[in-house]
Structures are given as C-alpha cells and as structure tokens.
Design a protein around this nucleic acid. Structure first.
Lengths: 201, 201, 201, 201
DNA sequence: CATGAATGAGTATTCATTCAT
DNA sequence: TATGAATGAATACTCATTCAT
C-alpha cells in the first residue's frame, strides 16, 4: 500500500489513532473485561487481526489508551490558568465553565474522565501509577488555586487537597452520567463552584 | 448434619447470607464481568459448586445482591426524616451527617452505593428498572426536602431533581473512593451540604 | 469427587499420567506445531478445558512430556549392563536385542525416542539442554562399552563418542520408521551391531 | 522494468529459484506447520505477497520444493554406478564416499535428504506417493548392488530391500544431524559401509 | 511486479456451569 | 449438602492469504 514510505507511515499512524480513539469510548462504556475484541473490532469497523497488527494484546491496547488519556492538554490549560493574574474565584469560575462546556460538547472528554475512574475500578496494578500521576498534576495546580482562594477568603477552609479531590470528583461524576445515562441534567458552573466557595451573602 | 429440619433451614439461610454479604464487596470492587466465580468462591471460602447450590447462576446471584442492596432501610430513614417537623437545612444537615458517618463506619454501605453505580456501568437491562426505582424513591424524598429548602430560602434555586441527583452523586463518589482508594480524605457534612445550600453569609 | 483426599489426589495423578501418556504419541506423530489442542483432547477423550486444569499451556504440556521422556529407566538398564562382567561384544549383543525388542513391542518406546528427534527438529531452546543430558548419559555408558570393545579388539577403531552416536542414531531411525511408516522391515540385532563391530571372519 | 520479454522471464525464473532454494533449508529446519510465511519471507528477504506471486499457496510451495528435491541427479548417478563393471564392494565404497562428501560439502543436499524425512513425518497424503517413488528408485538400484554383493559374498545376507532401507536410513540420519546439530562427528565411509558389508577378516 | 497492511478462519485459552462423589 | 474436577461455549490471539497501491 505504500504510495511512498512517508505516506505509508502516515496511514499507519492514522489507523492507530482511529483504533485508539474509537476504543476509548468502547472501553469507557464497557470496562476492560466487558469489552470483547470481536465486538470492538466490529465497532471500529476493522478486522480483529488488524487490532493485533497495531497492538500486542487487549491489555496493551488498554494501556496505550491509558497513556493517551493522560495527555498533557488538560493539565496544560489548568497550569496556564493557575498563573494568570486573576482572583481565585475568577479562576474557579472560568475553569468550571470550561470543564462543564467540554463535558457537554466533547464526548471523548467524558470518556477520558470516565476511564480514569474505570482504571481505578479495574486495577491496582502498574497503571494506577500513571493514574495517580495524572491526578497529582491536576490536583497540584488546583491546590494552588484553592490556597489562593483561602487566602483571599473566597474558598472554604479545609485541606486544599481534599477540596481539589472533591472538585474533580464531581467532574468525574458527571462524566460518568454523560456516558452512561440517557436523561440527566448537567449541573451548572455555580453548582460545581459550590464544592469550593464559601457561602457568601 | 441437620439437628432438625428447622436448624437445617437456619444453616441454609446463614450460608446464603454469608455468600451474599461477601459477594457484595467483591462485585463492587471488580464489576460483574470482572468477577470470576472461581475467585469469588475462594474469597468467600467455599467451593465453586456451593455457590450453585444457593444461586442459579452468576447473573442470579448478582440480581439477588442487587435486591438486597436496595433494601428499604435507607429509604425508610429518609422518608421519616422528610416528614419530621424540621427546617430543610436541619434535615439536610442531619442527613448529611448520617450518610457520611455510615460511609465511614459501615463498609458494606459503600459497597451498596458503589454497586448502584456499577449497575449503571454494566447494564442497560432489566435490572436498571430496579435501580431506577431505588434512586427514584431516594430522589423523591430528597426532592421534597429540597423544595422545602427552596421555599425557606436556604437551598439554591434550580431543578430540585437535578440537585437531588447532584447530592446523591457526591455520596456515590465517596463510596467509590472508600472502596477503591486507600488514601483519601472524606469530605465533611459542610462540604456535602454545599451541593445544595445557598452561599449564605 | 473426593472420596477421600487421598483417593482424590490419586485420581488427579492418574488423569495427569493419562494425558501425558496419550500426548506422547500424538506429539511424536504430529510434532508440536502440528498438534491442535482440540484434536489432542478428542484423541485423549477429554474436554479441552481439562488439559488446562493439568497443564498451563500447550508449551508446558510439551515440556512436561519432555521431562517424562527422559526418565531414568533406559539409562539405568544401560548402566547396569555396562558394569556386568561380560565381554563388550556380549554387552552390545544383549543391548541390541533388548532395544530392538522394545522397539518392536512397546509403542511408546518408539514415541519416546522419536520425540527426542522431534525436539531437535523443533527447538534450540531450554529443553534442548535436557535432551543433551539424556543423550549424554546414554552415550556415556555406551562409550564405556565401546572403549572396552576396542581394547578387546571386537569394536572398530574411531572416536567412541562418534560410534555411540552412530549406534543410537540407528535406533532413532527405526523408532521413526515404527511411528511413521506402515510397511518396513526392522533390522535385526546383527545389523545393529555392525555399526560397532569389526568385520571379523 | 523488463528490458525485454526475455529478460523479464529470466528474472522471474531467477526469483523463483531463489525462493525455492532459500525455502528448502527453512522448511527442513522448521517443518511445514512450524514455518510461518511471514518468517520465511523475511528470511528470504522479500515481501510476503511476493511469495504468492510465484506460488499459489504455502502448500504449493512445499510441493514444488518437494519436486525439486527429488530431482533425478542423485538417482541418475546411482544408476550409472550400478551398471559399471565393478565389484559390489567397490560400488558401495564409491557410493559411500560420494554421499558422505556431498553431505559434508553441499548443505542443500542435507536439506534435501532431511525434507524427505520431514515429509514422512508430516504427511500421509498425496505427497507421500512421490516420496515413495523417490525412495523406490533409489532403493531399486541399491537393491541391485546389494544382490550383486550377496552373490559375491561381500554383503551380508538378508532382505536386500531391508538393507537398502538401512543404508539410506543412516544417510538420512546424518543429514538430520548436519542440519540440526552444531557439534557432531560425521561417520566415515567405512562406518557407513558396515551397514551392508560382511565382517570380513 | 513487489509490497506489507488488512483480513478472518482457525487455534489456544478462559471461565461459568455441571455433576459424580 | 458441599465439593472441585471436568466441560465446552465464549473469547483472545495467530497466521496464511488477499489486495490496494
């Protein structure tokens, strides 16, 4: 199939991405052991064998997805936000708006978030390390914002890490709802913010 | 073996309960398709075959657990609370305290809650009906309290069902954390209440 | 199925032996990659799954067979023969008679011998070590007899190891013939002995 | 690409021969079912698809090899030898020298011989007919020489066909050794001849 | 013609369920 | 009744073959 070696490589990467992308939602919905390779392949629209051309095993495909999922994008955006010259309250507001919009619009964002939960459910293995890393970074920046907020008096007292965990937990929650329930009402940014903000007058 | 037919029956029920109780956490941790009968039996400390003496199939065991899980206790307590002559704020406070305490102390409460999530993840089948029922009832009473709170001015505006869903969602979240993570800090009742309460001075 | 734990263990060992015994000929005939688990199971008269109760994988079963094959019996007999107070010529005669009779009568002897060849054909891996061991011991005693014979003047000159290899090689050859050909004439002990003996008047 | 239709045809034949030649040793080493097309192609240094340009299937390639292997050369040489005005002993001596030299020098001779064994191991099918044919011719001339030798008193008594089979069997044996073992000592023509010759003073 | 990515029939392995003891 | 060895349907994975480039 090689038009040119370059084009060929491009196609390989394209297919690989296609498989990964399509698998994310499938695994997110069905879990690791709930996903049959035959069904997954059919869902993607390729032969079973093709999966094994690109990935050594089901396990490996899952791990690969796992890596992809933890890509830096989200973290990067949060990092940038953290260091903008804004009040913590504004930062939390901006973040909440953005996250909820993403949740609403981009289905694979929900899948990404859900898979992190999935991973917690299904594994206590090597991967969990990555998961922790992901959370850690996301939490790290969140903690900074929360600390800023606590100094500014807009955020409730309490362990900032616990609060960050709470905030992201709620995001997870709605990612799950998005993926697995048909009729639900998404919370708005005010609701999300209340996980952190003091009950001001 | 049986002293008397009565004693015999007692033993049967005892074993049945043991199986169910031990299975709850196992299914909650590993999901339906992630749970192997051989492992589960080993975990319980019985032979594989014994499971089939008491339950027709893995599916049936799961459903049985599902029923047990949705026992009326929680619902009943909430029902009682709902109709006590208290302010909504107080009711929410009492409820939150109780729920979080239960989550902290009673491990199978967490499992029960998690399994409801599990069920959402793994099924869109018959069982979901039951799940909905359970939630529906829990939500129903919660909605009443929220509506009372909105009238009293203590609870934020917005669709009461959405808010009930939010509140219980957070409870789910911490049930999951309890079951699947080793190190986390449980939120306190103030945190939980903020899902609903107006940010009052 | 446990009548008693003891009887139970006996049955396990019995089945294990049955599988191994039946597998020897099957592998010998068809080689490792030519043997399908489904066919093998059918041939043995058990379910496919049963094989996996006793052996981790096809590979492992083969290795287990390999170990069994190299059991000490043959070697022991040869060892005894080696140290009897006989002329080398007599020893070689006795040995040749016995080996050819075994080849004629005991089908799994042929299989055992053939599998050693098989192993050489299919592997250059860990197992080959064992194989070498087997051969080495068999050869070792044979070499002693040959050296005795060379001193006595009944055996041809030449590297004793080479001659031992030649002798056993011919035995291999007829094991293969026994297993894989329907019509052939087995050599007699005189023919076999000529691999070693001087052409005396 | 083709300079001329003629040159083009030449290239085709060249490639075809290359494939066959390289395949002989590969099949001989790994057997039919032990040989993967992907590995074989890599070994030859061509694409997998290319194999299918020249051969219909793996099966066909193997059969083609099989034909090549049984080319008349060896048979022809033996035929000539058979009818030379020499004593049987001399014929056997010449033949043995030649065969052993070929075995030592020409690697594909060993492969050719081994594949005949391989074929016996892996098939009881159509091909075996060819195999028999090959052996039959080789045996036929050998039998003549043996009969001559028995009349001349130099060759042992016994079924000439059995003896021919024995002689060629030993040749097979050392072909296998050549292909599959690294350290072994080749027998000399005296050793080989002893399969047939009377133990003369 | 040469290629190697894609394929799916074929094969190894797993696991819910049965059943003899 | 309790058991765990035996089972085979379901599932993961391999590899000969095809085909677009």
């Amino acid at each position: 199939m090689p038009k040119s070696p370059k084009r060929c490589e491009e196609l390989r990467i394209e297919m690989r991405n296609k498989i990964i992308h399509e698998s994310i939602r499938y695994f997110a919905k069905n879990g690791f052991s709930g996903t049959k390779i035959s069904d997954l392949a059919k869902h993607i629209g390729i032969g079973q064998g093709t999966l094994y051309v690109y990935f050594e095993s089901k396990e490996m495909l899952f791990q690969e997805i796992y890596k992809i999922i933890n890509r830096e994008e989200d973290i990067e955006q949060l990092k940038i936000l953290t260091f903008l010259p804004l009040s913590a309250k504004d930062k939390i507001h901006k973040l909440s708006k953005r996250v909820l919009r993403q949740l609403e619009e981009d289905e694979s964002f929900a899948a990404v978030v859900a898979l992190n939960t999935q991973a917690l459910l299904e594994q206590d293995k090597e991967c969990s390390a990555d998961g922790t890393t992901y959370q850690t970074k996301l939490y790290q920046y969140m903690v900074k914002i929360i600390e800023q907020g606590q100094m500014e008096g807009s955020v409730v007292n309490g362990n900032p890490l616990k609060l960050a965990d709470y905030y992201w937990g709620v995001v997870y929650l709605y990612a799950l709802k998005k993926l697995f329930t048909t009729k639900y009402e998404l919370i708005n940014s005010d609701d999300l913010e209340r996980t952190l903000l003091k009950l001001a007058k």
